[in-house]
């Protein structure tokens, strides 16, 4: 090492380290254009549309069964369209039930701290007939609650996510990651930009797609 030529090694080390750091940093987890790919590279399997009517007396109060339980498969992008039925403020908030026992009231699983408000009061403009569309990907099977934070006693129901054996292991792999993705992009807000021609528009972001995989982690880290 003392013949002095080892400095060339140092130059090579610089070049290699620069390349490695660039490659590493550029592979940073991003939730890109619509967030359909999660950091571990799992693609969603498809899209399901679901329309719900928001009424202070209960979800879907004048449209079939009140507070219906929704059934979805795991790893699908669920596009929720919430249509307002009255001129009262509502939210569309979801959370995971950790220990689901049949028969207990769903209210016991509401927790605003760990839940995710998918659609906020400012997005639901208290105009009957107005609708907001947001999407969400359930990566883990299990029981979830969806409710309105303003009317939690009446507007409160369940979502059941069914997973196959394969998708369950995939989901548990995600759960172990501390990456919690919750990038709502107020789709309603950015629609206001569409009149401004020089704005960069990422239309897929404006769709407001987002996902979380383990709401319980939210409480731990936030």
């Amino acid at each position: 090492m003392n013949n002095g030529k080892s400095g060339v090694v140092y130059g090579v080390v610089i070049v290699v380290l620069v390349a490695a750091s660039l490659a590493f940093v550029l592979s940073a987890p991003t939730s890109s254009g619509g967030g359909l790919t999660d950091p571990s590279g799992i693609k969603i399997k498809g899209t399901i549309d679901q329309t719900i009517y928001a009424d202070a007396s209960g979800w879907n109060y004048s449209h079939g069964p009140i507070n219906p339980t929704l059934y979805f498969p795991v790893d699908y992008k669920i596009v929720f369209t919430v249509i307002e039925e009255d001129n009262l403020p509502h939210t569309f908030t979801i959370n995971k039930d950790k220990a689901y026992t049949p028969g207990t009231p769903a209210t016991s699983f509401e927790n605003s701290n760990t839940g995710l408000t998918l659609i906020t009061t400012s997005e639901l403009t208290q105009v009957p007939g107005h609708s907001v569309t947001k999407s969400y990907v359930f990566f883990a099977s299990g029981n979830y609650t969806y409710w309105c934070e303003i009317h939690p006693t009446t507007m409160d129901a369940r979502i059941q996510i069914n997973g196959t054996a394969e998708s369950t292991t995939v989901a548990s792999g995600i759960v172990s990651q501390p990456i919690i993705c919750c990038g709502s992009n107020g789709g309603g807000h950015h629609n206001g930009n569409s009149v401004l021609s020089s704005f960069a528009q990422i239309s897929s972001i404006a769709a407001g797609v987002m996902k979380i995989d383990h709401p319980a982690n939210l409480a731990k880290f936030y």
């Binding site: 940073a28 987890p29 991003t30 939730s31 950091p39 990651q177 501390p178 990456i179 919690i180 993705c181 919750c182 990038g183 880290f221 936030y222």
Partner: peptide, 12 residues
């Protein structure tokens, strides 16, 4: 800095 996700300021 407390938003530990790619939408906030980085997961780690």
């Amino acid at each position: 800095a407390l938003q530990l996700n790619p939408y906030g300021a980085g997961a780690y």
